[in-house]
Design a protein around this nucleic acid. Structure first.
Lengths: 204, 204
DNA sequence: GCAAGGTTTGACCAATTGGTCAGGATCAGG
DNA sequence: CCTGATCCTGACCAATTGGTCAAACCTTGC
């Protein structure tokens, strides 16, 4: 992914600060809606200083995205073909929901990119994402054919897991508003609901 | 919503053209990422001409959003408290999925707005959306308590319906890419999958 | 066919955008 | 404490942004 790894500790610190600020901004406004000045102000650095560490606005964005796909697929990679089918899938749902809870900005960055037609992520989607999805969909298909879990469209099963878990990060504002003004954490209930939902779906 | 209704047929035609172009652009790039020039070019009108029909970029966006919420809630409004519980909910899922299929741009416009924290839609969410959601969640709760459908968190049930159906519009690129290069229509399979999913969830 | 109102546009504006650059400040190693 | 490399900045630039305006161009009803 990233060729240039920081030499000095100042570089390390500032690159982290920039990428963190950029994540904050890009995840809210998308690539085109974000400005270098916003990122500069958020990171506490000057605009020319940003461009000392990164050659362009696009380079910052690409750097964020390239790191993201790997992280994003980790929970799915951990789905063990040798584990108990239903438990594996339920555990995957839980990991994915946990990721939404802990990395909502990353989820929104991803959502923004896809919404815009994935102009800077097509390669990763056609490559890594599709490869891993095909592989795991085959595993799930195998489980279904063996009668270990109820039959269902394996790809749409995966889509539904992505959709449902990421929803709590991407539509956070809506979820919390609808649930009431109180700053209630929606995740515990979400976790229970999703467990029920997929447990019933997969039980033969 | 909109106070000024078109007087002449030219006005009518051009306002429609502008709003259509704006929907195209805003739904892809969000408010801040879209430019008047883009909308002008897409609509086939000149930029000053846009501003003859709408006072500002924001006014166009607001006009789109204010019309959207009503349309968006229609499928939920049709959920009949007197109908058969399971059939009603499954029909709602189908209507919502159909809406994603026929109005993907509207779905993305909505998604973009929520992703950015719903700065121009908070009122509608706290108002119309929450009111209707509360009302229908109560209906669903009643059904559950009466043992007509299996118990589940009514709000998260609604969230899951929104999430799953809108996913096919908002993440269209990803869905189609993962399913394969062929221009396969994912909606028939999605419809079957969702019917199975919710049917199993709701069956007592 | 002509006036009055509705429609369209080119030229323009100030502010913001992504990005450059020369030079100054700061740091690390000897 | 000196020197070379790293780090940082103010000033600047061309392009793009949302928006204005006077003047020209159409429609339409009489």
């Amino acid at each position: 992914m990233s060729e240039t790894q920081p030499r000095t500790r100042i570089q390390k610190k500032n690159r982290v600060a920039i990428l963190n600020a950029a994540l904050e901004v890009f995840s809210q406004f998308g690539f085109r809606g974000s400005t270098l000045d916003q990122i500069a102000k958020t990171s506490g650095l000057s605009k020319p200083n940003l461009l000392y560490y990164f050659p362009s606005k696009e380079a910052i964005h690409v750097e964020l995205l390239s790191g993201l796909m790997d992280t994003w697929l980790d929970p799915l990679r951990d789905l063990d073909p040798k584990g108990d089918p239903k438990a594996e899938i339920l555990a995957y749902v839980r990991r994915k929901l946990e990721m939404s809870r802990k990395m909502p900005r990353e989820s929104r960055l991803f959502a923004n990119e896809i919404l815009q037609g994935a102009p800077r992520m097509m390669d990763a989607i056609q490559g890594e994402l599709k490869l891993l999805t095909d592989e795991k969909a085959a595993v799930i298909s195998g489980w279904m054919e063996a009668g270990k879990i109820a039959p269902a469209h394996p790809y749409h099963l995966l889509f539904s897991i992505w959709s449902l878990t990421q929803h709590y990060a991407d539509f956070d504002v809506q979820v919390r508003t609808v649930l009431g003004g109180d700053p209630i954490d929606p995740y515990p209930d979400a976790d229970m609901y999703l467990e029920t939902l997929f447990s019933k779906l997969l039980t033969v």
